[in-house]
Design a protein around this nucleic acid. Sequence first.
DNA 1: TTTCATTGTGTCGATATGACGCAAAGATAA
DNA 2: TTATCTTTGCGTCATATCGACACAATGAAA
Lengths: 248, 248
Amino acid sequence: MQIENYIPGLSVDCVIFGFHENELRILLLKLKNLNKWALPGGFIRKDKDVDLEAARVLKERTGLDDIFLQQFHLFGKVGRNKKNHASNLVKKNVIEPSMQSWFEQRFITVGFYALVEYSKVKQPKPDLISETIEWRSINDLPDLLLDHRDIISKAHETLKKELNFQPIGQSLLADEFTMPELQGLYETILGKSLDRRNFRRKMLSYDILKDTQKRRAGTAHKAPTLYTFDKEKYAKALEGGLQSSGLF
Amino acid sequence: MQIENYIPGLSVDCVIFGFHENELRILLLKLKNLNKWALPGGFIRKDKDVDLEAARVLKERTGLDDIFLQQFHLFGKVGRNKKNHASNLVKKNVIEPSMQSWFEQRFITVGFYALVEYSKVKQPKPDLISETIEWRSINDLPDLLLDHRDIISKAHETLKKELNFQPIGQSLLADEFTMPELQGLYETILGKSLDRRNFRRKMLSYDILKDTQKRRAGTAHKAPTLYTFDKEKYAKALEGGLQSSGLF
DNA sequence: TTTCATTGTGTCGATATGACGCAAAGATAA
DNA sequence: TTATCTTTGCGTCATATCGACACAATGAAA
């Protein structure tokens, strides 16, 4: 990395959400020689758009292109990277001594959240400063670097709010999915259980699902119908938000 | 301004909304010797939080403290300040020649939107590079600097989306207001007319308004009741969003 | 005193919501 | 092969809410 090609003091961090076994999971890097985890992040080249640099980070870690990715907050407090943070990284051999001053400066970071289909991420790749990268449940997060826990909280909060405005189902589920799977996703994100029959009725009323006429075999009990999203209708419905009618 | 005290390449821009005569208005600066307008903005001191620097900009232009102010987007495209932008400002005597290189560098800006009570802004103060600062209707914007029109659009879009999650009524209206005034605000933000009686019913159902037992005198026709917001109940209701019930 | 636009309140049919019941499906156990 | 048992798909019904109105009261202006 040629640090002179990067904007000093500004970074991006990606909260990459996946959905598996009825849990929201996040891709986290385990730092070298350190019992700390961190969000996948990166710096911004002087000649690249910030949004594209975030997409690059996502691509480098997951191998995935064309993924739902959106900035949600800028974290700009003075004290967010602490005084001894950089020297500690050097001491533990996480970064080169020559990079200490780079990591010591005040850093402002732009938080992005991404929604990926869990099974599509085959072998996530750790970066230079990490030894592994793993899916971790949002309900059981390890010890995190700096304010990364706050960043995740804010991302999660944003996800809840945007549930009716972003193609969250399409992004997090496989192409074909069952109604119970979709419901599980909603229940997980909202953190509450929903009535099975009312959920189905409401979802179908949006007219954004296509019945594939197929059923998922192999599961115990009755085989559920497989649906796909009607992408055009889905996109159109999201423009105004998925809510029920309502006065506003 | 001591430029060495500021973070290079990063700025804040504030979209300051007011509501007057059933129109959304924005405080805009008219640049010196130039037929261009710009959003009030500023740079970020190296030892200050970004959010506080935005609050400082707001305070400097409007004199107001404790105002609803929230970041909504980071504008980080490479080309957002064009090549000849800075030299043009020098040529027109808007900025000092010594500042040309500062304005020439790539700039990334954080957009904030503020909601202020129109009548509380007594004499907005222009900054060093502007000759006047005025309220301009969002429906009739003048020629704007760089991508400031895009920034305003994004702010407006955000405002619509957040209508049920932020104390928009409380922030934009005077302390005491009438039901028709509140409805006018909603209609203006949403860009559609609402049934008078249904609007009242829905608003009252939220149980966030307090009847002051007073009426606005002097208006032609029947004197409307004056309400205030019950701030505690309002805040509580906003936590979950103001929507009707709904499944999610 | 009359006029008239505006406010406050109520009505009513249509629709959506929330809480259920019940039969069909399909793997597993008997 | 048959019975069991959980899950899915579809439907019912009382209640709440929505959307579109009607009508009386108010208060300044004519």
